[in-house]
């Protein structure tokens, strides 16, 4: 996994709540069997509208997405995270994320940053007033900085450590393989098996 320490970039204000993963990437784009090449599917239906914020050239090259509450609810599709990464996003800021999306993002080096609604609104206003505003997402300090403002965000120590180090979960778990084997020996034999 890519490491995440501190990222600074410009940001896109997405003034919508309940941005479900079907909006982030519609199902027709999920047929690919690779992990890349999903950028064309990102917000595909909304991008058909010329006024959609991602179509605004002022925000081209932005790498931080600022969205309303309940971002990434719905379908478990990790393709939503891959598409955001392919497009160039490194962090998403929202008051609340769908659980599965949040977990997926943490696995793929896309930082889900939870800020309270007033902070999100302040960021929306600031970025709309100045699309070139640099927004810094600092995982080491667990804070977002923009202009003179600083907001702290929560993230558990373990997830933070994994991201800072760019660690892969499977290798971490395989360090405990003996414990897994011991657990398997204790499992009741009547539990179902399909082979």
């Amino acid at each position: 996994m890519d490491k995440f320490t501190v990222h600074t970039g410009t940001a896109v204000p997405l003034r919508r709540s309940n941005v479900d993963t079907d909006q982030i990437i519609p199902a027709v784009y999920l047929k690919r069997v690779t992990k890349t090449g999903f950028a064309d599917g990102l917000f595909n239906a909304w991008r058909a509208d010329p006024d959609f914020v991602l179509n605004n050239p002022a925000y081209s090259g932005a790498s931080v997405l600022i969205a309303g509450p309940e971002f990434g609810t719905g379908s478990s599709r990790e393709h939503a995270v891959w598409a955001l990464r392919d497009w160039g996003f490194r962090a998403v800021i929202s008051p609340r994320f769908g659980d599965i999306f949040r977990g997926n993002a943490l696995k793929d080096g896309l930082l889900p940053v939870e800020l309270e609604q007033p902070a999100v609104e302040a960021l929306w206003d600031a970025v709309e007033a100045d699309p070139t505003l640099a927004v810094t997402v600092d995982l080491e300090a667990r804070e977002v900085r923009a202009g003179a403002n600083v907001w702290a965000f929560p993230l558990d120590d373990f997830s933070r450590w994994r991201l800072l180090e760019g660690l892969d979960d499977i290798s971490l778990t395989l360090r405990h393989e003996a414990a897994v084997t011991a657990f398997e020996e204790r499992r009741p034999q009547w539990k179902p098996a399909v082979i």
Partner: peptide, 10 residues
């Protein structure tokens, strides 16, 4: 519960 593809691999 539902999981993402990275977790499927895990």
């Amino acid at each position: 519960f539902g999981i993402g593809t990275s977790e499927v691999e895990h």
